[in-house]
Design a protein around this nucleic acid. Sequence first.
DNA 1: CCTTGACCTAAAGTTAGGTTTAGAAATTAC
DNA 2: GTAATTTCTAAACCTAACTTTAGGTCAAGG
Lengths: 152, 152
Amino acid sequence: MRVNEGLSIGALAERTGLAVSAIRYYEAQGLINPWRNAGGQRRFQRSDLRRLSFVMIAQQFGFTLPQIRAELDRLPGGRTPTKADWAKISGGFRETLDQKIETLTRLRDSLDGCIGCGCLSLPNCALYNPTDRAGEKGPGPRYLMGDTPKRD
Amino acid sequence: MRVNEGLSIGALAERTGLAVSAIRYYEAQGLINPWRNAGGQRRFQRSDLRRLSFVMIAQQFGFTLPQIRAELDRLPGGRTPTKADWAKISGGFRETLDQKIETLTRLRDSLDGCIGCGCLSLPNCALYNPTDRAGEKGPGPRYLMGDTPKRD
DNA sequence: CCTTGACCTAAAGTTAGGTTTAGAAATTAC
DNA sequence: GTAATTTCTAAACCTAACTTTAGGTCAAGG
C-alpha cells in the first residue's frame, strides 16, 4: 500500500478497536465521510482515526450519535483538523459533563437525605421532581417514593 | 372501592405518573407482583407505590431493570417493607453512584488535560483505556484518540 | 491462475424499555 | 339497565446502536 492511498476499513477497525460493521454504520449516520477507491472500497484519512476516537469517547459520556455528529460538523471542512480545532469542540463537552456530574451528585445527596434516613416523605423530599422528566407525560408533576402531596 | 381491596392499575399509574402499559411491563419483568380480583384485574398494595417509585429513581441513576429487580428481591418477602428495609437496599445505590460520579469526574479531568490542552498524544493520556470497555471485543486494548502506543 | 481473505450492499435480526393496537370482558356512572 | 370507562391479553410496533446474514466482488499471495 502506497502513501496517500488512505486506510482500509479493516485497518481503521484494528486501530480503533471498533467493529467493521460499526464503522460502516457510522458512515451511514454521517459521522465519517470516506471516499472510494477504483474498486468501490472505502478509503479513510488518517484523521478519521481521531474522529472515530472522538466518537467513542463522546459515547462514553452519554452523547447520542446525532449529538456527536453535530459536534463533528463544527470541524473545518476543507482541511485536516488541528489540535486547536479538536480542543474547541471538546470544550462543549466540558459543560455537559459538569452538568451530568452535578445532577448525579445532587441525586446521590438526596438519596442520603431521603431514603437513606428512612423518611420517605414527599413532597418535601429533594427527589420530588428531580429532573426534566416531569411534564413529559401529561399534566401535573410526578411524585416519587409513593406519597402524594395532599394526604388522602 | 372498599378498604383492603387494593389499588387498580389506573390508580397506581395516576399516583406514580407511569403509564399503565409501563406498569404491566414492569410486572412482566418481575418488578412487582400484584394479585388478581374476581374479575381478573390487577390489584396492588399501597407499598407498590413505593416500589415503583424506587424503580423510577433507580432508572434515573442509570440502573437497568434486571439490576433494579435484583435490589428489590432483597426486600423481605412476607411483610410490607419498613423504612429500614428501604434504607438498606438504597445503601447499595450509594456505592454505585459514588463510582459513577468518580468515573465521570475522572473523564472530565482527563478531557481537560488531554484534549483540552490539545496534546492528543496517547499512550500517556488518561483517556487511554478509560473504562471496562477494553477487553470486551477481542484481544488487546483499544487505543483512543487516534494514536497507537508504538510509533508507526 | 487460483484461492483465500477482505470488502461490498441490502435487509433482517438484536436488546432495552417500553407503546400501540385490537377485540373482548369487567367495572363504574347515571 | 345501559352507556362509558377501565381493564384484560397477545402481538405488533418503536428507537438507538449496532450485528448478522446472504450473496456477490475485490485484492493479495503463491
